[in-house]
């Protein structure tokens, strides 16, 4: 198990270098650069432009800039934002809890509803219930996130007035961040109504972000369950006289979860990508919105650094999933 883990860890190095090159190169393919955007509509003299370019080091060859950047990264320095002048890493850690809170809520909703729905559809295969679940999943999967988000805002915020439109918490409340998770911090602050406010802000974006993973997880669970339910060992479990609940919920589900866990792991990438749209719609102050804003400002260090961190997170989660996979599947755990 340890050597398996170390080998997987070693594999991360080339992937990481690849991501750093791509994130470095792609942003520079966009027309415009941070200095031109800083000047705004008034423009600036060519001398001033060159001077600033020299100051930021953008006049050096790309390879030199990249190596310089990489050297910094290896020392844990992702540079600082051109716009806010604050270190990228520091900005990231200020904003990341918001995204993490949103993503955790979303994946919890997706798993808590997706897995049981998939199991139910598989057990009642061919029934009206099965078709209803799978039909809903297909709709959820095919719906554009931003459109779905706007629909929910119109209904729940606009027509019904149940939920706020944007942000993480009502402006009435202020308390210093302790964990960075608004739900927990609002409870810790002891202010009446703060938790309620935080929760009502979180509900809609979580549902929107959960929609696609939920649909994918439900479909994957159903197909994995269908395959497992016809296995000999499920018949053996029934032959023991065990109740259906235990046969399906333990003997079958445990095997069906193996592919489902991989799917859940892969959804982390989808979540972070989805967070960019969702956070923008709901003005959620997380890293998704941060990235979008930085692209508009051509804030090179932020985009490079942000992409690198996000890619790192996705890689780590995938590694974690592989480890978890081994824990669920004894055949992998004992290999070699």
């Amino acid at each position: 198990m340890l050597s398996f883990f170390l080998r997987r860890l070693l594999l991360l190095i080339p992937t990481f270098i690849g991501v750093s090159i791509v994130s470095f190169a792609f942003i520079r393919l966009l027309p415009g650069d941070p200095i031109m955007l800083m000047a705004g509509e008034r423009g600036m003299s060519a001398e001033r432009y060159l001077e600033l370019q020299h100051q930021f080091g953008y006049d050096r060859p790309l390879v030199v800039q990249y190596l310089d950047y990489l050297w910094g990264v290896l020392q844990g320095d992702l540079g600082q934002s051109i716009v806010t002048k604050r270190p990228v890493l520091q900005e990231f850690f200020t904003l990341f809890p918001a995204t993490l809170e949103l993503s955790l809520c979303a994946i919890t909703i997706a798993v808590a509803i997706g897995v049981p729905a998939g199991v139910l559809a598989a057990v009642k295969r061919g029934s009206f219930l099965d078709q209803a679940i799978m039909g809903t999943a297909l709709v959820g999967y095919s719906m554009p996130i931003f459109w779905w988000g706007l629909l929910l805002i119109i209904l729940f915020s606009g027509v019904l007035g149940w939920t706020p439109v944007s942000g993480r918490i009502s402006l009435m409340f202020f308390f210093p961040p302790v964990t960075g998770f608004m739900l927990i911090d609002s409870l810790l602050s002891g202010q009446a109504g703060a938790f309620r406010s935080a929760l009502s802000h979180l509900v809609l974006p979580s549902i929107v972000l959960a929609t696609i993973p939920l649909a994918v997880i439900a479909r994957q669970t159903r197909s994995a369950m269908l395959e497992v339910l016809s296995e000999d060992y499920v018949r053996t479990a029934r032959a023991k006289g065990l109740p259906s609940r235990r046969v399906v919920g333990l003997h079958a589900l445990r095997n069906a979860l193996i592919p489902v866990i991989t799917t859940i792991g892969l959804q982390v990438g989808v979540l972070l990508a989805g967070a960019i749209l969702t956070e923008t719609i709901f003005s959620w102050p997380g890293i998704g919105k941060w990235m979008v804003d930085s692209v508009f400002r051509r804030d090179y260090p932020v985009i490079q650094g942000g992409l690198l961190i996000i890619a790192g997170i996705i890689m780590l989660v995938n590694l974690l999933v592989d480890v978890l996979y081994g824990l669920v599947n004894p055949r992998i755990r004992h290999a070699r």
Partner: peptide, 23 residues
Amino acid sequence: RRIVGRDMAMIFQEPMTSLNPCF
């Protein structure tokens, strides 16, 4: 179910796939 697996038991043709691989 109280009889099946207790007073009346069955074994199958494929022993390798009849046992649950996860337990």
